[in-house]
């Protein structure tokens, strides 16, 4: 009974009430994943499960046995930042930094959704093989991640710089 978290095998908690978020933060001290509302409304707790983004506050840890979780701590390669992490610094895509890990994990999951051609509410042609890469698409798809400091422009700029080639 184990969950893979950033490449390490972690036992599933005994208490079935423990959310994936609380497992990360309180048991494993992986506090990069943030708790902003604990209700799935803010996106600060976004992590990647087998490459797909989820809000970990609404996920019970026991449900993730055998799954592979990547958190913000698992994105860097040693000292080398993930290109999106660097882009967030370059474009000032945060102020207080509390929503930042969730924004970054969410954007990585979102880019994969774009690559797979999954349409969104603003996609014009739902049957097209490819979703055109645009600012409006990114804004729509990132709207589950709140930023209360107002770093939205920098966040979208950072994502555009990092994943703009998805469109090509």
């Amino acid at each position: 009974m184990a969950i893979e978290i950033n490449g390490s095998q972690v036992p599933v908690p005994d208490d079935p009430r423990v959310s994936l978020l609380d497992l990360l933060r309180e048991s494993l001290h992986l506090t990069g994943t943030k708790k902003g509302c604990n209700q799935g409304a803010c996106g600060a707790c976004t992590v990647l499960v087998d490459g797909e983004r989820i809000v970990s506050c609404l996920a019970l840890a026991v449900q993730y046995e055998g799954r592979s979780i990547t958190t913000i701590e698992g994105l860097s390669d040693g000292d080398a930042l993930h290109p999106l992490q660097q882009a967030f610094i370059d474009h000032d895509g945060f102020q207080c930094g509390y929503c930042t890990p969730g924004q970054i994990c969410s954007a990585i999951g979102m880019a994969a959704e774009l690559r797979r051609g999954l349409p969104s509410h603003v996609t014009g042609d739902l049957t097209a093989e490819r979703v055109p890469f645009s600012r409006v698409e990114l804004q729509e798809r990132m709207s589950g991640n709140l930023c209360c400091c107002g770093a939205h422009n920098g966040i979208i700029d950072a994502i555009t710089e990092t994943f703009g080639e998805v469109a090509a």
């Binding site: 001290h29 506090t31 994943t33 701590e73 930042l81 610094i89 370059d90 945060f94 930094g97």
Partner: peptide, 21 residues
Amino acid sequence: VSRLDGRVKVRGEARFAAEVP
């Protein structure tokens, strides 16, 4: 100048109040 605390924030290493062990 880019934020001096940027690196720890994008890596999730900035420890906020509820995160101090």
